[in-house]
Design a protein around this nucleic acid. Structure first.
Lengths: 285, 285
DNA sequence: GAAGATCTTGTAATTAAATTACAGTTTGCG
DNA sequence: CGCAAACTGTAATTTAATTACAAGATCTTC
């Protein structure tokens, strides 16, 4: 774990003097890494050995080692903060902020994602007779993307962003079919219904949605992402990117599971597109 | 600049002994940050002052300061490397790799993105009479997503993933209309045609595509992302995520440009969805 | 509520690490 | 070939960090 986070979480285990040290470090982390133990001790108004003990308590070898860890946390943490776009931001500012907060979201997603669950989802998908991707609104494009990916695997895959079609498809599903329902909040009533119907018809339902949501309750298997979304803008941004990456992961797991022979198929699909494209050499000449 | 990169680039300015030091550090950077100057000097088979001089040459205050910089470079670099998925990777491995390489791609995209061009694109979009998003294959889902976003702004927006519809729409476009063509490679013939047709009909054409591609040539304005794509898998993954983030940026720029009054509209759109959802409180009870 | 025990904190001594000063050696150039 | 500049190492010095120990605070138990 990040040293900075560690300081914050274990603030209760500190003694009075150690807390003084923690406060000073948290207030000026950048200064800390360029200070000597004496300077820091003075700033925190404690003795040098106290600072040293503080470092040891955080499982570092001593002050120099602590500074190293702190420097790494700082390097990692700085570009990852979830910064909000402000009214007066110029193009540089909001561009940087959106990139950074998306990256931050992916980072948290990476840390929180349930890998055994991904593995189970891949299991289920590889054995599916038919795969259906359902999403509404912003999640519809994620469903489309998933269809596009899995279509290349030469497995029966469908995708609907229309409630009626989704409903019909769900009713017609059978054992061995896999239905993937995508919704960030997991509170879209229609999609919950679809999941329930699919399950009643013995399909396996994978939910890419918030853990503990109504939709999650209807699913056989839930892949939760738990990305902190910037709700100020009223648009799902980072969450949907995380969903796409999750689709990438499932697709990758799928190909790996199917083995190398199967992957030749992918190349065939790609080659088949060639006719509709300008070749690189054509264009260069 | 990153210290590690700095070592690599300035390797020619080093003396013989200093190069020995550089080699050892580059070979075991992680070990270096936990070594004393004496240990490192021994490893490189040079004297301690030589190591110190080496550090100074890299614009650091001395060995401890150098270690700090190195630690930061390492922290920044490690999660950002573009790691390829291997045949024998398990779920943890490929999940981590895909997250990391996606983040790495976003990072390069962030660095390379042309901000004045984004600003011009936002200009054009805010003044558009009608906005059309066109994409084919994997880029179609990006176009859908863009439609979903801009639709909330209460501006006329359409999206087609069908060549015929795209063509008709392009033919019917007029001055003041904006057509956004999305393609990672920029070599899809059909889409190039669409761009050309739209331009002939006085529409402004924004290309979200590779700089220097056939499609780019047909556009009024090109937003290039230049994300290094892992072509081994034959699937656009990171590039498409970067495209989505770019859409987010354009949408954000759009709302900011329109001002706060306009943003109340967004809230209205969001509130209108409420009826179709389970409320949080409903579910909790 | 007081005595013992434990935990916390600081002072001073020690040790370890890094830096500087200086001198010997090598290398390049006229 | 010889001078000068740059490179490198040894040894001394300085600086920083750690340890050992003792004094003080806090907590427990009778």
């Amino acid at each position: 774990m990040n040293v900075l986070e560690k300081i914050v979480t274990s603030v209760n285990n500190f003694s009075k003097s150690e807390r003084k040290v923690a406060d000073v470090i948290l207030a000026n982390p950048q200064t800390t890494i360029h200070s000597s133990i004496a300077a820091l001790a003075k700033m925190a108004d404690v003795s040098e050995p106290t600072v040293n003990r503080f470092c040891r308590r955080l499982d570092t070898k001593g002050f120099p080692d602590f500074k190293l860890h702190l420097a790494q946390s700082l390097a990692n943490g700085t570009p990852y903060v979830n910064r909000h776009v402000e009214e007066e931001d110029g193009p540089e500012a909001y561009t940087a902020k959106i990139f950074e907060s998306t990256m931050a979201a992916l980072d948290t997603a990476r840390q929180r994602v349930d890998i055994p669950m991904i593995n189970r989802a891949v299991d289920v998908l590889t054995q599916a007779k038919k795969i259906s991707f359902f999403g509404l609104g912003a999640s519809a494009s994620v469903a489309h993307d998933a269809q596009n990916k899995f279509f290349r695997f030469n497995v029966p895959v469908v995708c609907f962003d229309d409630i009626v079609m989704q409903r019909m498809s769900a009713i017609n599903s059978a054992e061995g079919d896999v239905v993937v329902c995508i919704s960030h909040t997991g509170r879209t009533k229609n999609l919950c219904d679809i999941a329930a119907i699919a399950r009643e018809n013995d399909a396996t339902v994978i939910g890419i949605t918030a853990y503990d949501s109504p939709l999650a309750k209807e699913c056989t298997l839930v892949l939760s992402l738990d990305v902190p979304e910037d709700t100020d803008m009223y648009m799902p941004m980072a969450s949907r990117v995380a969903q796409l990456v999750l689709i990438d992961i499932l697709a990758t797991g799928f190909t790996l599971r199917r083995g190398s022979k199967f992957r030749e198929n992918l190349k065939k699909v790609k080659d088949s597109l060639r006719g509709s494209r300008f070749e690189k050499k054509d264009f260069a000449s």
